[in-house]
């Protein structure tokens, strides 16, 4: 299922080698971008998701299981999920969208978000929980 080139590539990625990362981007970049653009019409969004996909790949390469799928399929799966989340975000009201963006994309703490939005941290935590559930429902709707 996995070729020798891919095996070397995965080894390099697990060692966080910049060369391997560059090779990965060159090898699968075009494919990921076209997949993302198909789901997200906006190029800006597609570019952001593209970068997020590869960052996730580099960070979570140790979780990749060669037995289950090829590297290309694994990367495609991440790209698909990321694109779906981004597409679902568009269906959220501005307040909930900004909460999710601040928490997941800008990696702000609940305390900081509470300060920015001028609301108690507990409220932010509960809103995030509800928004996550809502997002899951929206993704299921898009998929169906």
């Amino acid at each position: 299922m996995v070729t020798d080139i891919e095996t070397n590539l995965i080894e390099g990625l697990r060692e966080h080698s910049p060369k391997a990362q560059q090779m990965m981007v060159e090898r699968y970049g075009r494919h990921v971008f076209s997949q993302v653009v198909r789901l997200l019409p906006s190029v800006e969004d597609a570019e952001e998701v593209y970068q997020d996909v590869f960052l996730k790949v580099f960070l979570n390469i140790n979780r990749y299981d060669e037995e289950k799928a090829s590297l290309k399929s694994w990367v495609s799966r991440i790209a698909y999920n990321e694109s779906m989340i981004r597409a679902a975000l568009k269906h959220l009201p501005p307040e909930e969208r900004s909460l999710i963006t601040m928490f997941y994309y800008e990696e702000m703490s609940v305390k900081d978000i509470a300060y920015v939005t001028d609301s108690p941290p507990n409220t932010i935590a509960s809103k995030l929980f509800r928004t996550r559930k809502k997002l899951c429902k929206i993704i299921q709707m898009i998929q169906s």
């Binding site: 560059q22 060159e26 970049g29 075009r30 971008f33 076209s34 570019e47 970068q51 590869f54 960052l55």
Partner: peptide
């Protein structure tokens, strides 16, 4: 596929820069 917007040329460079930052 051809009708889709093309991939920006500097996208990979920007990605690698972001990886470095991270």
């Amino acid at each position: 596929e051809e009708a889709l917007p093309p991939m920006p040329a500097d996208l990979n460079a920007r990605l690698m820069q972001r990886v470095e930052e991270e």
